[in-house]
Write a protein that binds this DNA or RNA. Structure first.
Length: 929
RNA sequence: AGGCGGAUAGCUCAAUUGGCAGAGCACUGCUUUUACACGGCAGAGGUCACAGGUUCGAUCCCUGUUCCGCCUACCA
């Protein structure tokens, strides 16, 4: 196989483009079908079509790619399914903003044309993020790219909707839902973000109808809603109010009277005044209380969150106030009502009160509880098996800490509002017959419906709000033309679309071809691992589990790996408005994709937020360069004969590095098995840089660089062999540079990505070599330290003495001289203590190794004495602390024997070191005087 | 309001069945030696948030406090 000369410097952009194209050209990301191999499948969390790659995507997809590449190399039948999400509200908002710039609105275009416009936009820019994922190296099978509004997936959506409707798990009903008056649509509970604000709690006087002198005080943060009150509740056991239960109060600012009820669920006696106004159409608790007591609901606001004059009239609001409130916003209405209450002296006090305000997660507009007919999924029956799957460990959540989060939410799950009053999405497969439902289609502006702002009544209702909950929908997988009841042909489809998360909930099986029993579905479902951020645990993960189990009878995936959210260096959530966004694409072109990938992997420690500091990327870019240069060195010395030798005849450094390599392989495998990407990265970094490059390559130099060195062929063999294994070990994290290097060396096969992942070599493990090497390292380090202490130039020859020479300690180190000479870049004489010229020596001690270095007269001895003194002090301190411990009878009695022995040994060796250092110091002092 | 997590070197983060606290970046010296100055070598830098408790011994276990973050939530 051809090999190429590596360039002097690594050019990430060129290399990345080359291999990305090569991989695509050879379809290397497709699963290799083999009946025997176990399958491994990941479905991508589909990014929004509106999006471009942000750092969260980069992290999410890097981790998935590491897993996929790793499993692929391990020989599994591997599939990573890519795709994008139509992202209903988000995408609609983007296109509406474009229209606005042209002075248009979606109403101008009409539904059909608007949807076409969104599709056009999707064709043009929807694949931006896909291209960016390819740039990141994501090894998805791009031939299987899916979109949530694909034909196949839309089919799956209808299939599920109809099925769940038929079994009673989808229903239509008039409920209080969260309404965004800007997006003009319902939102599910989790689409509402809560923000703590300082509000005002108003205490308002409600007089008894038959005794105006007696009154109740109710407290509210929303005085404008009192116009829609239909009762006041007190606690049945509250002695203050017991005698009032059943009486009527006069509702302020209206001509209505409302009853005083007892309700132990709604009322907390301790809070406020103990009396609560009930406004069933404007508060979730009140809605439920209203259901319990059969109360009428006055929905005071229209869908723009403005006062509805028809309802105000119906609620018998005072005439003047009706006029004042005409079409006012909630905020204005509040001020007007407060003013009116003040004038009548009904406002007792207003106090500051902290409260949570709900906002739309897409546009941050304050959401209103809004009474309207909507479609819901009945979640409780779906949640039960979804809870069980996680409790029994059929689905594993990693890190486990999030399990309780999931379970807690699932156990308190509310029905899921799935209808959205927007146009972009899967239109609900329900039809209504106009003639059968004549009485159930509301005029815009009527009391039960929202006001349509005086526009003409559309030929078909534009929102299902205009269709009462009594209407009879015909739910079907296929488009309906005729009414099955009356045979009429005047049908129209429900105008609403489904929550974007409805189709995402089907993602793991819909992308594999469900409801068809495809080969992919058989091979890859249930999928293996889902990799996602915590932010969509409820939005997405929980719902996939519910839907997966319900519709396929199987869990959708076995492991859920939840990674942290990426924050900036200050710990702030990254957002465009804050201007603290780290753009992964910029960083990729600046530092190289492999560097970014390695950074993200190294920071993926479980269960935490990660703060990304740019310096980290820079640091790992240096690591990439280091690897590149090591490759160049090895390539330079790769020519010439290579021979394997028997393990016993391997050189000392060869024995050591193979043992360490084996250890690195084991650690990386262990880390990946446990989703510890951070540990895998750190082992790779540590091993490659600080063992392989710093020590092994340095030690390989003498045999490689000298002509006819007896060890040359063997060393060359080990060097090349181990380096090739390192490339494979590193490949899942750094796919580009490893491919480039692998291809540049003699090789067989199409690509490194289809080579086997390294496995442990038990016969390489050599604890004796590792032990000896530690000793050798200690010896070298001590010598260097001494040299640095004494400012001896690196190229000055040294004579090194030892009380115990390293050779005595480790008999296997027979031919140390070449290594020491090479690594210390100086000649060396080993000698016995007795031969020390005692006036020219600094002794350095570590454990039972002692190195003596000759001291030149020119040196700044004052400085050296100081440093030595400091060392002695530190050792004294540690020694006396340990001595106290060892002397303590309690310690001797209770501590483990091994701990006692360890401590004693340490004390002994510390004493020895102190003695030697002290004598060094004395010698130096003598020399000074 | 409840739940969860965090507080360790200047910064970003590790580690520990409870027995010498570790990396990377930044910093200080020395070093331009033919893989690499995006390099090499050496070094300095810690009351392990605070206060109690358990223990021969606590950064680790327990209790409380403070600060920070996140998630959930209808306290009018």
């Amino acid at each position: 196989m051809p090999s190429l000369q590596l360039d002097k410097t690594y050019n990430p952009t060129a290399v990345e483009e080359k291999w990305a194209a090569y991989w695509a050209e050879h379809y290397l990301f497709q699963p290799r079908h083999s009946e025997k191999a176990e399958s491994y499948c990941i479905v991508i969390p589909p990014p929004n079509v509106t999006g471009s790659l942000h750092i969260g995507h980069a992290l999410n997809n890097t981790l998935q790619d590491i897993l996929i590449r790793w499993k692929r190399m391990q020989g599994l039948q591997t599939l990573w399914v890519p795709g994008t999400d139509h992202a209903g509200i988000a995408t609609q908002n983007v296109v509406e903003r474009q229209l606005k710039e042209e002075g248009l609105s979606r109403e101008h275009l009409g539904r059909q044309a608007f949807i076409e416009r969104v599709w056009t936009w999707k064709q043009q820019s929807g694949d931006t993020i896909i291209e960016q994922l390819k740039q990141l190296g994501a090894s998805c099978d791009w031939e299987r790219l899916r979109f949530t509004m694909d034909k196949g997936l839309s089919l799956a959506v209808r299939e599920v909707f109809v099925h769940l409707f038929d079994v009673g798990l989808i229903y239509r009903g008039e409920r209080l839902i969260n309404w965004c008056p800007r997006c003009l649509t319902a939102l599910s509970d989790i689409e509402v973000e809560h923000e703590d604000i300082k509000g005002t709690l108003y205490h308002i006087r409600y007089g008894l109808a038959d005794d105006p002198e007696t009154f109740l005080t109710v407290a509210t943060t929303r005085p404008e809603t009192l116009l829609g009150d239909t009762a006041v509740a007190v606690h049945p056991e509250d002695f203050r109010y017991q005698q009032l239960i059943g009486k009527q109060v006069k509702l302020p600012l209206t001509t209505r009277t409302i009853p005083i009820l007892a309700d132990p669920i709604l009322v907390d006696r301790e809070f406020g005044t103990g009396a609560v106004k009930i406004t069933p159409a404007h508060d979730f608790n009140d809605f439920e209380a209203g259901e319990r007591h059969g109360l009428k609901r006055f929905s005071l606001l229209n869908h723009h969150a403005r006062m509805n004059p028809i309802v105000l009239k119906e609620a018998q609001v005072n005439l003047q106030l009706q006029k004042d409130l005409y079409d006012q916003s909630v905020q204005q209405a509040r001020l007007i009502v407060i003013e009116a209450l003040t004038q009548k002296d009904l406002l007792i006090k207003a106090e500051e009160h902290s409260m949570a305000l709900g906002k739309c997660y897409r546009c941050k507009t304050v959401v209103e509880p809004y009474l309207s007919p909507q479609w819901f999924v009945k979640t409780e029956p779906l949640a039960i098996p979804a809870i069980e799957a996680v409790e029994t460990g059929k689905i594993r959540i990693i890190p486990e800490g999030w399990k309780n989060n999931y379970l807690g939410w699932m156990r308190n799950i509310k029905d899921w509002c799935i209808s959205r009053q927007i146009w972009w999405g899967h239109q609900i497969p329900a039809w209504y017959c106009r003639s059968c439902n004549k009485d159930h289609l509301l005029e815009p502006g009527s009391a039960g419906a929202a006001s349509a702002e005086g526009s003409a009544m559309p030929t078909s209702p534009t929102m299902s709000c205009f269709i009462t909950s009594d209407a009879k929908p015909i739910v079907s997988k296929t488009d309906q033309k005729f009414c099955p009841h009356c045979g009429g042909s005047d049908l129209f489809q429900d105008p609403d679309v489904l929550d974007t998360w409805f189709s995402s909930a089907l993602w793991p099986f819909s992308t594999l071809g469900w409801p068809e029993q495809t080969q992919d579905l058989k091979t890859f479902y249930p999928t293996s691992t889902l990799v996602t951020g915590l932010d969509i645990l409820f939005f997405w993960v929980a719902r996939m589990i519910m839907m997966g189990i319900k519709l396929t009878g199987q869990i959708p995936f076995r492991d859920v790996y939840i990674h942290a959210l990426v924050r900036d260096a200050e710990g702030q959530k990254m957002s465009k408005s804050k201007g603290n966004v780290i753009d992964p694409l910029t960083k990729m072109s600046q530092y190289g994709t492999d560097a970014l990938r390695f950074t993200l992997a190294s920071m993926a420690s479980p269960g935490r937020d990660m703060k990304l500091a740019e310096e980290r990327i820079e640091g790992y870019r240096n690591f990439v360069t280091k690897i590149w240069n090591a490759a160049r060195f090895i390539q330079l010395h790769s020519h010439g004969p290579k021979t394997t030798v028997t393990p016993e005849r391997r050189t000392f450094p060869d024995q050591w590095i193979l043992s360490r390599l084996n250890n690195a392989i084991r650690e990386v495998l262990k880390a990946l098995d446990n989703y510890r990407f951070d540990q895998a990265a750190s082992h790779l970094y540590q091993f490659i840089w600080h063992e392989y490059c710093d020590w092994y390559i340095e030690l390989a130099k003498p045999s490689l660089q000298q002509d006819n060195h007896p060890d040359a062929a063997a060393t060359r063999h080990t060097l090349l062999d181990s380096f090739e294994i390192i490339q494979r070990l590193l490949h899942p994290v750094m796919p580009f540079i490893t491919e480039e290097i692998w291809q540049s060396f003699p090789h067989e096969g199409l690509s490194i990505m289809t080579q086997p992942f390294p496995t442990e070599h038990l016969d390489w493990s050599n604890s004796q070599a590792e032990q000896d090497f530690s000793l050798f390292q200690a010896f070298v380090t001590m010598t260097r330290t001494g040299r640095a202490l004494l400012n001896i130039p690196a190229n000055q020859p040294l004579t090194i003495f030892g009380t115990t020479t390293i050779q005595d300690e480790a008999p296997s180190l027979k031919n140390l001289h070449p290594y020491i000479q090479s690594i210390l870049r100086s000649t060396l004489t080993l000698a016995q203590t007795t031969e020390w010229p005692s006036d020219r020596i600094l002794q350095l001690v570590t454990g039972n190794l002692t190195v003596g270095i000759p001291v030149e007269t020119k040196l700044d001895l004052q400085q050296v004495v100081k440093k030595v003194k400091k060392q002695i002090e530190a050792k004294h301190k540690e020694c006396s602390r340990l001595q106290d411990r060892v002397a303590s009878p309690a310690f001797r009695e209770k501590a483990e024997a091994s701990v006692i022995q360890e401590s004693e040994e340490r004390v002994t060796s510390l004493r020895q070191e102190i003695t030697l250092l002290t004598s060094s110091q004395q010698q130096l002092v003598t020399m000074l005087s």
